[in-house]
Design a protein around this nucleic acid. Structure first.
Lengths: 238, 238
DNA sequence: GAGTGGTCTAGACCACTTG
DNA sequence: AAGTGGTCTAGACCACTCT
């Protein structure tokens, strides 16, 4: 029941305000690192709200990595907060257009072949599967922005064999038609090498490369290797 | 009230099972991209549970980027799911030890100075502030793993001036004693340059560099530039 | 104005874990 | 065995936004 004053003003407390107050106490080391904080019932009494409201606030702080919660053991302040950086994976055309540039896409090559050893290993394939191998270039204001080399497992997403990839980039199609359940991503620095001629740079210029493998449950979908033009930076919010 | 069968078995439905069922329907395009899905009251009736349970499930899917929810307008399936990669920011010593190697840390230089122009800009400083400038090397099994160059704003965290940084790395101290409220992180590829002699590689070897700026509300805390040894890869889970 | 999601409450039972 | 967090329910009111 919402508590109401005689004048009719709503008196209930939001879970966000409790989260903020608890966060402030953690920052001020009012609850020291490693220490138990009061349990939900006591905090609810202190804040004058329902236990569920305290629960929502503390669950949020636990998800954010500031608290450690365990049944019976109680809630502790983490010694070293587990901070997370979130990278909202951009669709290349969205990213380019967000920067104010005009986006263009060029299909460079498209063929069906067996996976080379590296790809076989990443996708845990036997080697006999038919893969769609696509390389493409993405441009911002006609300047090369990213070169992509991608292998797509046709057993998992057979429909893509009939898609006109000169108009739709494989990533755009996959995002809409074949959402993955999980995957991994890696960043590394390497010499541009074979990508240099597409990115219009020297073969030994350092470029940022992003590797992605995605899965639909136990089935591999795609392995993508994207190399960005030398000046590119990948930005994350903390 | 928990619904109970005559035989006493608990009949209530978990929010996770509702989330999974709705996710399955989205994948199967049973709810098409861009389309409205039923409202919470109707779904609660369908699943035979309270509206709050449906709310929890749908809120989770919205946070994950699969649904778009707006009051009055209802809940829609996102055309292109806003997928996120999460990088749990590792403490270097934890990361190294997790890989099974022995971690070591060496303080290379420590001095108090005014910020150079680049740092001044990143931290939005006037240029007259006193900054603690620390460079250090982090090793895995005695092999150089990461070279760090860091500036710390003493006006924001004066206590660090008295810390013995030959034993505690600045990052470890900051994480425990001065949690930031927000910040940014950037990845780029560059030639090792001056870091080469510390990383034991050639000056023109490509290395992955991570830039970090963190804030305590409006006050800048630190700017760090970390270059990883050439073979290093940064891995994220999707 | 009205429909939909966002949140709060009070109470209950459950699940996990620790002592 | 018992304490603590995790979750569900039924009901209520509110906030936002679309028409």
């Amino acid at each position: 029941m919402t508590v109401t004053r005689e004048d009719g003003a709503d008196n209930s407390i939001s879970w966000q305000s409790i989260r903020d107050e608890m966060m402030a106490r953690i920052r001020a080391q009012l609850y020291a690192p490693g220490e138990l904080i009061p349990n939900e019932v006591d905090l609810a009494a202190e804040f004058g709200c329902a236990r569920a409201t305290v629960n929502r606030a503390l669950r949020d702080l636990a998800t954010s990595g500031f608290l450690d919660r365990r049944r019976k053991a109680g809630t502790r302040v983490r010694e070293a907060p587990r901070r997370k950086a979130t990278l909202t994976i951009p669709l290349t055309h969205v990213e380019v257009e967000a920067s104010g540039a005009r986006y263009a896409y060029r299909l460079l090559e498209r063929k069906i072949e067996a996976p080379p050893p590296l790809v076989r290993e990443k996708l845990r394939l036997s080697g006999r599967e038919r893969l769609l191998h696509v390389s493409s270039l993405h441009l911002a204001d006609d300047v090369p922005h990213m070169f992509e080399n991608r292998w797509i497992v046709l057993d998992t997403v057979p429909e893509i064999e009939d898609v006109d990839l000169s108009k739709t980039s494989p990533n755009v199609w996959l995002v809409r038609q074949a959402p993955y359940t999980h995957g991994t991503m890696e960043f590394l620095a390497e010499a541009a090498g074979a990508a240099a001629k597409h990115l219009v740079c020297a073969p030994d210029d350092p470029v940022l490369t992003m590797l992605r493998v995605t899965w639909l449950d136990a089935q591999p979908i795609t392995y993508a290797r994207q190399s960005f033009s030398p000046s590119h930076r990948m930005r994350l919010e903390l």
